Simulated scan of single mutants.
Amino acid sequence: MAFDSLSAFLLMGKHGIYVWSAYGVSVLALTWLVWNTLSARRRTINKLRKRFLREQNR
């Protein structure tokens, strides 16, 4: 392994703050995208279901 210890791995030669914050921002962005997509899908399905039921009752 390139690092002598876990703390050296986490610090990554004084670049650890940048590296881990980049990973954190990426994970947050991907999590938000998945949540937003699933939420929009749920809203669209509910909207279509309501429209279908309205049209069936005519």
Rank of each mutant, 00 (worst) to 15 (best):
residue 31 T to S: 13
residue 31 T to A: 11
residue 50 K to N: 11
residue 46 N to W: 01
residue 30 L to H: 04
residue 27 V to E: 06
residue 28 L to V: 09
residue 30 L to S: 08
residue 49 R to V: 00
residue 26 S to Q: 07
residue 12 M to N: 09
residue 32 W to G: 01
residue 12 M to W: 09
residue 17 I to M: 14
residue 16 G to E: 11
residue 3 F to D: 12
residue 8 A to E: 15
residue 12 M to E: 13
residue 17 I to K: 15
residue 10 L to A: 12
residue 23 Y to N: 10
residue 7 S to F: 12
residue 21 S to F: 03
residue 53 L to R: 15
residue 14 K to M: 11
residue 37 T to G: 05
residue 29 A to Q: 01
residue 10 L to N: 06
residue 49 R to A: 06
residue 24 G to S: 12
residue 40 A to K: 08
residue 47 K to C: 01
residue 29 A to E: 02
residue 28 L to M: 11
residue 51 R to Q: 13
residue 35 W to C: 02
residue 17 I to R: 15
residue 58 R to E: 13
residue 8 A to L: 10
residue 25 V to I: 14
residue 1 M to R: 13
residue 55 E to H: 11
residue 12 M to C: 12
residue 57 N to D: 10
residue 11 L to K: 15
residue 45 I to P: 00
residue 19 V to F: 15
residue 53 L to G: 02
residue 47 K to E: 08
residue 30 L to P: 00
residue 53 L to W: 10
residue 36 N to I: 00
residue 16 G to Y: 06
residue 47 K to T: 12
residue 47 K to Q: 12
residue 3 F to C: 11
residue 48 L to I: 02
residue 44 T to F: 02
residue 49 R to K: 12
residue 31 T to Y: 05
residue 47 K to D: 08
residue 29 A to H: 02
residue 57 N to C: 05
residue 25 V to K: 09
residue 3 F to M: 09
residue 18 Y to N: 13
residue 4 D to L: 13
